[in-house]
C-alpha cells in the first residue's frame, strides 16, 4: 500500500516541473509502469485524487501506460516476453536473462497549460530546452 507515497512523490515532481515551465495548470500526466516496479496502476489511480487535491494538477487526467515484461537472453540473444515471476528466455529457456522492460516506474510526459507560450513560434526562447531534461 505504498501507492500514496508514490503519488505524493509524483506530485512533488509534477508541481516542480509545472512551476519551472510557468504552467497555470497540468492537463494530463502520463506514467509508464511495469509489473515489476512494485506499483499497482489501479491503486495509484485511486490514490491520485487524494494526493492531487489543491495542487496545480488537481484536474489533470492521469493516464497510466503499462510496460510489458520483456527479457533479453545472454545465451541465445532472443528478446522475448515473460511473466513477472518467470523471467526465463522464451526461446531457449535460459536463466541468463536481463530485464529489457517491465520494472519501469516513470513519469513519462506532462501536458501543461502555459499562458506565455500560447504562440511558441513567435517566442521560442521563452521556454528553455534545458528544462526538458
Amino acid at each position: 500500500m505504498h501507492e500514496l507515497s508514490v503519488c505524493l512523490s509524483l506530485l512533488e515532481q509534477v508541481e516542480r516541473i509545472a512551476r519551472e515551465n510557468g504552467a497555470e495548470r497540468v492537463e494530463r500526466i502520463l506514467l509508464r509502469i511495469g509489473p515489476l516496479s512494485g506499483v499497482e496502476a489501479s491503486l495509484l489511480a485511486n490514490a491520485y485524487p487524494l494526493a492531487a487535491a489543491g495542487t496545480v494538477a488537481e484536474h489533470a487526467v492521469l493516464d497510466i501506460e503499462a510496460a510489458p515484461v520483456r527479457v533479453g537472453c545472454d545465451d541465445c540473444g532472443a528478446e522475448t516476453e515473460a511473466a513477472a515471476n518467470r523471467l526465463l528466455c522464451g526461446a531457449c529457456g535460459s536463466h541468463r536473462t536481463r530485464l529489457v522492460s517491465g520494472d519501469e516506474m516513470l513519469l513519462a510526459r506532462l501536458e501543461l497549460h502555459v499562458p506565455d507560450v500560447e504562440n511558441p513560434q513567435s517566442d521560442p526562447g521563452s521556454v528553455g530546452g534545458d528544462r526538458l531534461l
Binding site: I17, A23, R28, A108, L110, V117
Partner: peptide, 19 residues
Amino acid sequence: GKHARTADGRAAVEVLESL
C-alpha cells in the same frame, strides 16, 4: 529547445523521471 505541442495546443514536456 521548444515544447512539443499537442493537437489542442498544450505544452507537452517529456520527463522520463522515476516516480
